[in-house]
């Protein structure tokens, strides 16, 4: 392609862009432009408001659950005597309910053999 031809194309393209500008004039806004715009704004606001409230609700619920858990865990529930005894006291105290059964399993009576 010769440079003059290329230059011709450049000019034609510029002219085409100019024609395009004239062919795409700004349209007259319809009478509904502003009401529709405000409708969209309000719809978006309601949407954001709904999700904002939902997020706040979730955060409040999470905080309440955390507080509840903290209270539940901080209250001493080990009132049973078993947990107040030392290890040795517990062993000697005969709290092991399975001890007799275990003994019987390990050392059966001679007539059972």
């Amino acid at each position: 392609m010769s440079s003059s031809y290329r230059g011709g194309d450049e000019r034609s393209l510029d002219a085409l862009f100019q024609a395009y500008r004239d062919a795409c004039q700004a349209p007259e806004p319809s009478p509904n432009f502003m009401p529709l715009l405000w409708q969209r704004i309000e719809a978006r606001q309601n949407y954001s408001f709904f999700f904002g409230r939902l997020a706040k609700g979730i955060v409040t619920a999470a905080v309440a659950i955390c507080l509840g858990m903290a209270v539940y865990l901080s209250v001493p529930r080990h009132s049973s005597a078993l947990f107040n005894e030392s290890y040795v006291e517990a062993l000697s105290g005969g709290h092991n309910l399975d001890a007799d059964q275990l003994h019987a399993d390990l050392f059966p009576e001679p007539d059972e053999m």
Binding site: Y20, R21, C24, Q25, A26, P27, P29, S30, F33, L36, L37, R40, I41, R44
Partner: peptide, 28 residues
Amino acid sequence: YRKRILGTIARLIARPEDVEDVGQEVFL
């Protein structure tokens, strides 16, 4: 700015039927 923005959009997208919709999106 409405008229100017709609004109720019008309040239950017080349579809007159959708110009107003995109224009509203801009102002939104």
